[in-house]
Simulated assay, not measured.
Amino acid sequence: STTIKSILYYNKNKIRKTFEINTIGAMALSFDWRWSWKQKIPIYIKVFLVLWFLLGCYTTGEPINGVAIIFTFCFSILTTKAYMHLLNGSLGFFGLHDQLVLYKENAEVEILNILMADKEEYLQLRDYFMQTMQKDISNLQRTMSIFNEKIEFRKFKF
């Protein structure tokens, strides 16, 4: 049997990240969909949110309505994951923690954040990590933020 020694992350048929199995320093289950410490909100979304806020203030004369419009916009973004799981038949299976986060053990703390879209993907990943690392992902620490300071690495604390 062939032993897989690395995980490749593809985007548009190009390899974007490579994780050697022996460099994984920590794993966690998360709700956070970010994929990089440097990931920021694009400027066009910031402008859009400011315009939504100003529109709410302008149309009603009350700043609280601008906040309500922004809350509604953010709520709709957050519910897209729930809708995806509803369509895939996995709503309620994961709870909130449907992202498997792999942390490379290096100074930059590189991560690979894997969205598990349905129960079948979860089971495939669980089997894979049981075979390669003897690690059951169902017993991993659960966190809301991928950059939680309580995540413990093999050689250092994050």
Rank of each mutant, 00 (worst) to 15 (best):
K157F: 13
F129H: 01
S76T: 15
W37R: 15
N11H: 09
M133F: 07
K157A: 12
N106A: 15
V47L: 09
E110V: 08
K119S: 15
I45D: 10
S90W: 00
Q99D: 04
L87H: 01
F71P: 10
C74D: 13
W37L: 15
L125E: 06
Q99R: 00
G89Q: 01
N106M: 14
Y103F: 11
K38L: 14
W52V: 03
E62A: 07
Q134R: 05
N13Q: 03
E152P: 12
T143W: 06
S138L: 03
P42Y: 04
W52N: 08
E105A: 07
T72L: 15
F53S: 00
I151K: 12
R142S: 02
G66Y: 07
T79M: 08
T132V: 14
R142H: 02
K150F: 04
I137M: 02
I24C: 01
Q39R: 13
K157M: 11
T143C: 15
R126K: 05
L55T: 14
L8Y: 05
K119G: 14
I151R: 13
E110L: 09
E121P: 00
F19I: 01
Y122W: 09
R16D: 12
T80P: 04
S6C: 10
E62D: 13
E121L: 03
N88W: 02
V67G: 10
K155N: 13
T23S: 10
G66I: 09
Y103E: 13
T18N: 07
T3W: 07
L112N: 00
I15P: 08
I64S: 14
V67N: 09
M144L: 12
K17F: 02
N106I: 13
H85N: 05
W35G: 15
H85D: 05
N139T: 09
L55Q: 08
M27N: 03
S90T: 01
G25H: 10
Y9T: 04
I24F: 01
L87P: 00
G66P: 03
N13L: 04
S145T: 12
K38H: 15
F48M: 05
T59S: 10
E110R: 13
G89D: 03
L125G: 02
Y58M: 04
W52A: 08
K81A: 06
E121S: 02
A117L: 09
K14V: 14
Q134L: 05
W35Y: 11
F153L: 10
W37S: 15
E105I: 06
Q141R: 00
